[in-house]
Design a protein around this nucleic acid. Structure first.
Lengths: 244, 244
DNA sequence: ACAAAAGTGTTGCGCGTACACCCATGT
DNA sequence: ACATGGGTGTACGCGCAACACTTTTGT
């Protein structure tokens, strides 16, 4: 980019771009995929739901801005939010995506476990979890962003160990399987899923202490923690055809 | 992002961000992976190689800016450049990535066939193909961008039909295999590769007319064109372990 | 004759799929 | 007793890796 530059470096000489971050935050809750959304109070798109987000400040990277916004919107402490999985998705730059001015937005995807309902500390008073798809059309191009994020998350479950990011620190294999089934919208064969996960070194580590717990009815299940592995080899392919 | 906004909409009220695109353009040439680079004439990083790129104009999206720059740097007509594979990679926004001012750059990856050496029409006088790795440290954070691009391309070859983007309109299976071997840095079993490609519906279509051509010594090979398929199922996994 | 690359055949193993079956708990 | 979910075992089949082998060109 810095190859040849038509004029000097007076910042005012460049078209005024605003740079923001948008967050597509997912969780699995009540056997449904849920998205963190805020309700817009002003035009444009007043009354619609939108992805949380905000401006990138002059001295922070987009990643830092995204993590800051994530902490604010979820109402978690910065320390807790620092441990959440956050990943850059894509940048949306259509000149008309915001009618007010030129806004380029770097979208991030976050995967969080089943957190308490966000009682935002001040800034994000009405950030709420909504089931994915159970909200009307979102503001701006956020429907596109959300669809891209969902596709990305579904694809990454196939070849990474990302699914543990949806789970609490200790979880059962049934809960982990629930993540896959919810995100993909399919049902998986329980025995095969179990073998697949346990056969992948570093995916999960068994908790040896009290090796069982109940999730309601049925036989108590062993507990596991996320392992050090990040990649999944060979991949855990979802049934049926492609997603794209 | 537009959820709550601290002040009005005077563009001057926002920190001055410049938004640019950087291009990681790959080709396979002489059995090597080559990258399109420009030499910097001014500080900072004068004399170093850098990725081609430029500013996003006020009324164009980043994608359009990238395609415009691609046409300029390769010296191709807009019509030809419009057919090239272009894909958003990621956005780089470290506050210190450019010492002059705050520059947020959206990086794109392009895969092109073995084009004639770019004799840039004016703007890009010294854009050149260099073998990947045969250039010193690049300017700014372009080493990071290039490494990310290479990793992305390698991964996408596994589960997409993208490899044909490196090939001319008609190509032999040997040339297609060369793409995989060059990008991955491995050697593939020829018979198995052939079967794998031909068994994937829509990956390639045989050219029936004059069904052979010579690439030097050896038996003449049948010619193929890229098919309509974009995904590759099941994937064509590279040998050995992961890339990350 | 030899090298080099295309194309065909064949075999065996690994892994995933699809089941059947037992175990432990709540109602 | 029965439903529900956890955990173990097993058999079938597809896909791929790893060869051997033939064909067609250039030198």
């Amino acid at each position: 980019m810095q190859a040849q530059r038509p004029e000097g470096y007076d910042p005012r000489a460049f078209p005024p771009f605003a740079v923001t971050v948008d967050l597509a935050v997912f969780t699995v809750r009540q056997e449904r995929l849920q998205v963190l959304l805020v309700r817009r109070g002003q035009e444009p798109h007043a009354g619609r739901w939108a992805l949380p987000g905000g401006f990138v400040l002059p001295d922070e990277s987009a990643e830092r801005a995204a993590r800051r916004e994530l902490a604010e919107e979820t109402g978690l402490s910065d320390a807790t939010a620092a441990g959440l999985h956050l990943e850059q998705l894509a940048t949306y730059s259509d000149p008309d995506r915001d009618p007010r001015m030129r806004v380029v937005s770097v979208a991030y995807t976050a995967l969080v476990p089943d957190l308490p309902e966000p009682r935002g500390g001040g800034d994000a008073a009405h950030a709420r979890w909504l089931p994915h798809g159970a909200h009307g059309p979102l503001a701006f191009d956020h429907d596109t962003i959300l669809a891209d994020a969902h596709r990305r998350v579904g694809a990454k479950l196939e070849y990474t160990c990302l699914a543990t990011a949806f789970c609490p620190p200790e979880f059962t294999l049934g809960e982990l399987r629930q993540v896959y089934e919810t995100v993909w919208g399919v049902t998986l064969d329980r025995p095969n899923f179990r073998r697949k996960v346990l056969a992948t070194p570093g995916f999960v580590r068994a908790v040896d202490g009290p090796p069982r717990l109940t999730g309601g009815r049925g036989k108590p299940a062993a507990l596991y923690r996320a392992g050090p592995a990040t990649a999944l080899h060979p991949p855990l392919l979802r049934p049926e055809g492609r997603t794209g």
